[in-house]
Amino acid sequence: MTAKPRLAIFALTGCSGCQIALVDLKAELLEVLEKVALTKCSTLMDIKEFPEADITLLEGCVASEKDVAAVRQIRNRTGKLIPMGSCACFGGIPGMRNFFPVEAIMRRSFLESESTVDGRIPVGPRLPALIPHVRPVDQVVPVEGYIPGCPPTTTYLRAGLLNLLEGKAPDLSDKNLCSQCGRNHKKMTTTDFEFITETTFAPCELEEIDATLCFLEQGVPCLGLATRAGCEASCLKGNLPCRGCMGPTTDAFDQGAKWVNALASLLPAGSLSLMDDVPGLGYRFTLSMSAKQK
């Protein structure tokens, strides 16, 4: 019928934000769509079955038995499988449930939450069972590249798509986000054995945030230094610290641990551990790629 490559876009467990990001390409999306035959995309068309495709962008993490089956089926029916967004690449936000066993999560969600009245844990043949740990796509089937981000910025998504259409893998920077951030350093440039601040803050605790100075130097935990570049530091330009959605850099295999390695020499460990959520900060997006629990 046509020589255009067939593009499918599919979502596992996630928020569909990445597909919305794709639609956010607006007029530019038309330019992309001219080059492909779109065979599935739930934000744009209504097709239930997963068709055959040359390129599949897969959103969301593998969280249930239904997801596992879907991923395997897609793998068989697609040429290039590319996880899109942090859930598919690293497990993402839903991956944080790996801190707890499934039973505890079900109990908390359906029985113990403050708003629950007469709660019960839902069961039934149509409800897919949760697998013990959330997994990124590449822990279930092999993949041909990654487009990380929560969601990926439209520029990055578009560049990745165009790369794919030229037969290349999407570009991944090897540098950390500091290379794109452009904020100034003062205390980081001198060696002493003191921390660069006396205590740490959440951004909302600061009366004023200096938009030109490194967040760490203002005592705000920022994950940019342990995070792959590629998003053009959009959060930092909006005067918010990086949360690490682009995942660890090429030569680091554990974002949280790498962050801790660096942070221990920069911010006071005592006040950091008082914040009580070093793991939550360090592994907001990458817990399930880090802990390969059986």
Binding site: D174, K175, L177, C178, S179, Q180, T190, T191, I196, T249
Partner: peptide, 23 residues
Amino acid sequence: VASNECGLCRTCTKVCAFNACSI
């Protein structure tokens, strides 16, 4: 240093006790 991976965050200049790291 793999210069293609260095993002200039300056953590190394901060931690080196011998002032051996610079940008």
